[in-house]
């Protein structure tokens, strides 16, 4: 009963905050970027909430539960990627005064490159929409086990849609404060304290792990250095071009604030959160024996170590972690779809664009619900196929910001084609070089970017 009550309270709070804040939304820019006027600390919380999703919370804990100390590579790889994204890209992106990634590409490299990037971005981010909606449903069924997965996914999708369709980015940034408060309280304070006390501290945890599975105490003892470095590089570089936070970076009041808020969010909240989630998974080796699948270590620990009321609050934090990311990726997909796909075919005034963004959001979430429910394998395939987007974007972003003069439409188009072809062919061939297909595609596209852009570069004619 307490679980159901907490779930209802959380959902009601999200809706009230979102709807009240959302009444301020009047224009398409209010909806997409909160009129580029998000206060510094509000943006810090919002960026953290968008970054922290099912992968960061359940994934990090699961890796350390399954692989021990070696499992920390996921947190370290993702964390370093986020720091690089903040330091290298955030300020520069905000300086461009754009709202979407394709808009940025169109501004510098023309329509054809932007169209290709728009399609790749939508495809890649949509896979995250579907997986986050599925995660939302899965967590709600932990509160109310009598609910079917589809019904739980439907309820959470409707809740997410109500506040985001009304309030867009304005509502998202306000509700993110509640989400991040719950997440920090649960994953960085309550759960570690409970785990440490129950397991007899770090000494007790290491002693228990040494007795049961000593390899889990050795760095690279369970997965090997090659996998750790390859996967760490994968998560680090793919995290550098972060679609989830693009709208929030664009919504900052200035380039300096965008960079500062992004870096504060990463160093103060996101990176420590990843390490804490990993630590909880590591403590789980000592506390939870014989768990069927490592993915459910965090909910299993909540169930085993806490009472009903505290457990319900901790589960609400998991719901909050996924809700922020789900809302964020759905918004990115719908804004990109409205501005960079539909907007290319029909001219729209501000009022119409706002309506199209809202309708797109409902369509994207509806499709995400169907794909997320009926095809968990489709979602994982889409995530794999979404890799070319990252492989193309990382070198193009670096080229745009640090090699701008030489970058040209033809060279970039060749880079995109090579990124897509090399990633997919290598993936279909079964990743023969033992590195991920994303990393292979990234290496190919980076080399191509330098060669193709240099070869296709034409010096601008100087008028007399």
């Amino acid at each position: 009963m307490a679980k159901i009550l907490i779930a209802i309270l959380y959902i009601a709070a999200i809706l009230v905050i979102g709807i009240i804040a959302g009444r301020k939304v009047k224009t398409a820019d209010d909806f997409a970027t909160a009129s580029r006027n998000i206060p510094y600390w509000t943006n810090v919380y919002s960026m953290s909430s968008a970054w922290i999703g099912a992968g960061s919370t359940l994934g990090c804990a699961s890796m350390c539960y399954a692989y021990g100390i070696s499992g920390f590579y996921l947190a370290i790889g993702v964390g370093i990627g986020a720091i690089l994204a903040s330091v290298v890209f955030a300020g520069r992106i905000r300086q461009e005064n754009v709202s979407t990634i394709p808009e940025l590409i169109r501004k510098h490299l023309g329509k054809t490159c932007a169209d290709c990037i728009a399609l790749l971005t939508i495809f890649s981010v949509f896979s995250v929409v579907a997986s986050q909606i599925r995660s939302l449903g899965t967590i709600l069924t932990m509160f109310i086990p009598s609910l079917s997965l589809f019904m739980a996914m439907l309820i959470m999708t409707v809740v997410m849609l109500i506040y985001t369709v009304i309030g867009g980015m304005v509502a998202a940034t306000k509700t993110d404060k509640l989400n991040i408060g719950l997440m920090v309280l649960s994953v960085m304070i309550i759960l570690p304290i409970i785990a440490l006390v129950r397991a007899g501290g770090v000494a007790g945890i290491t002693a228990a792990v040494r007795d049961a599975e000593p390899l889990k105490l050795k760095v690279a003892g369970t997965v090997g250095w090659a996998t750790m470095i390859s996967s760490g590089l994968y998560f680090g570089t793919s995290g550098m071009v972060n679609s989830e936070n693009f709208l929030r970076v664009c919504g900052a009041r200035s380039a300096k604030e965008a960079r500062g808020a992004s870096l504060t969010s990463t160093l103060l909240i996101y990176f420590p959160y990843l390490l804490f989630a990993s630590f909880i998974g590591f403590a789980g080796i000592a506390l939870v024996k014989n768990l069927g699948t490592s993915d459910s270590i965090l909910p299993a620990m909540v169930n085993q170590l806490t009472g009903t009321f505290l457990g319900a609050i901790l589960l609400a934090a998991l719901l909050a972690a996924v809700m922020g990311t789900a809302a964020s990726v759905t918004m990115v997909t719908s804004v990109t779809l409205s501005r960079d796909v539909i907007g290319r075919f029909t001219k729209m005034d501000d009022r119409k664009l706002l309506t199209v963004q809202r309708v797109s959001m409902i369509a994207v979430a509806g499709l995400g619900l169907i794909v997320g429910y009926f095809g968990s394998s489709i979602v994982s395939i889409m995530e794999d196929v979404g890799a070319p987007c990252g492989a193309a974007l990382v070198p193009i972003f670096c080229g745009l910001f640090f090699w701008g003069k030489k970058m040209n439409a033809k060279g970039t188009l060749i880079t995109i084609v090579v990124a897509v072809a090399s990633t997919l062919i290598y993936w279909i061939a079964g990743s023969p070089l033992k590195i991920s297909h994303f990393l292979f595609g990234l290496i190919c596209s980076t080399i191509t970017m330098f060669i193709a852009n240099a070869a296709c570069y034409k010096k601008p004619e100087v008028s007399a």
Binding site: P39, W41, T42, V44, Y45, K177, I180, G181, V184, L185, M188, I189, P192, I193, L196, V197, G200, G201, V202, A203, L268, I269, P272, F276, F279
Partner: peptide
């Protein structure tokens, strides 16, 4: 519970305190 355990708890609580401090400060300023 040893020294390292308290360090972990202090870091977690410190981050939590900082997050809530700025959240309340921003709300009060409005």
């Amino acid at each position: 519970m040893g020294f390292i355990d308290y360090v972990i708890i202090v870091i977690g609580c410190g981050i939590g305190a900082s997050v809530f401090y700025h959240m309340i400060k921003e709300a009060v300023r409005k």
